[in-house]
Design a protein around this nucleic acid. Structure first.
Lengths: 218, 218
DNA sequence: TCGCATTTACTGAATATTCATTCGGTTTAA
DNA sequence: TTAAACCGAATGAATATTCAGTAAATGCGA
């Protein structure tokens, strides 16, 4: 009677498929039919494991958020300068950033109370972890004394905003270079003045000065 | 035969109504019926002025983007320090920021080529104007010499990200205070070291130190 | 080691609902 | 009288969810 339990495996399959379809169609436009196909199941098969489309979304959020927080947790106790670890975190985020999924989920959160609660819980935990990392930087004298929570929130806004812009294909050169340039700028501002400006290695201006000066007379 | 032309008036009515409905329901969930009602028209009446729902979205985007760019344009030639003007711009944005609309529109842009082009055009213009303003700051020695385009993009990411987070109700105290704290932090980093840290007047820490230090041992 | 019963895992057509859009008809101002 | 401005029921297409079945793995008795 006890058949080998495939439900964990199936759920993983379905969530993977859903992520793919959400990516290309958007959450609202994603059809259960297409998710089922992508998961090598029929519509009914998907409903065997998930109560509804919403349940899939919820589970997917959970998976993504946990993966993200786990990564940051690991960085909190990893070695290296705080600056380097913040950059590493940003780089890891970048991998996810260009997918419309995250923005869609946030978007959804503005309309569903339960989704909103889930997202806020994630954001608060993210803030706590980032603030802790920044506090580490202050304690080690890498960063100037600033309010770690404000700094954490600032970084979060920058990350989020960058992800949003990158998603739309709005970048100077390539996303990674732009991300690093942005972080260099912000982290320079947060660093101890002793080394006044850590040389901004990546940020090679891509526009000629003519080009942006033209903006003054449009 | 030449009746007084009400079409401009009607279009304004409809766009206003659409903005309201998009705000509370989201773009996809907004029903033409509801937009029509809000505009004191029937469904057919709305279709008399707009070819489709997409046309309404497009026109609304156009209106919002132009209002934003016009405001920034005015700030570019206004008096006051660059810092103050960047703060003023951010404050003006904040008024719009808490509505899900902007995020929805971006979100939509990832799926419609024409919407995407429209958004990118706006973002590029925004970047040009912000870069020009920052260049002004460098020329006047208010800001340290940095790549104005990178700085502009950094500010844009921060603005966007902040708007996204504020939309979800993710703030320390009140949105305005948080926004100013964030900008102070970023602009301090961009300012000339001579006055090493412009006193961060608004950023009164809201969490006790116990509270965020707890984040280290979760 | 073969049926046979039983339960789990699945299928996909049918159902029900939800809108964007259309269009034949009505109102109103000139 | 005419044409622009408007109405709103009807149409049609899209799609989440259900459900009456089917397939297949397992245990069990002979």
């Amino acid at each position: 009677m006890t058949r080998p339990d495939v439900s964990e495996e199936r759920k993983r399959q379905i969530l993977h498929a859903a992520a793919q379809v959400f990516d290309r169609r958007g959450i609202e436009a994603a059809r259960m039919e297409e998710i089922a196909q992508e998961a090598n199941l029929s519509v009914g098969g998907v409903y065997w494991y998930f109560k509804s489309k919403d349940a899939i979304i919820h589970a997917l959020l959970d998976k993504m958020f946990n993966a993200d927080l786990d990564g940051l947790h690991a960085l909190l106790v990893a070695e290296g300068s705080v600056r380097d670890r913040l950059i590493t975190y940003a780089r890891e985020e970048l991998a996810t950033a260009r997918s419309p999924l995250r923005s869609e989920l946030y978007n959804l959160a503005t309309r569903s109370d339960s989704a909103c609660a889930q997202v806020l819980e994630y954001l608060n935990e993210l803030k706590r972890l980032l603030a802790a990392l920044i506090q580490q930087g202050i304690d080690r004298n890498e960063l100037r004394p600033l309010d770690p929570v404000t700094a954490a929130q600032t970084l979060m806004a920058a990350y989020e905003g960058f992800a949003e812009l990158a998603m739309l294909g709005f970048t100077l050169s390539d996303p990674e270079r732009d991300l690093l340039a942005m972080l260099d700028l912000i982290l320079d501002g947060m660093s101890q003045p002793p080394k006044p400006a850590t040389t901004t290695t990546v940020s090679t201006p891509v526009f000629s000065s003519d080009e942006w000066q033209a903006a003054t007379q449009p």
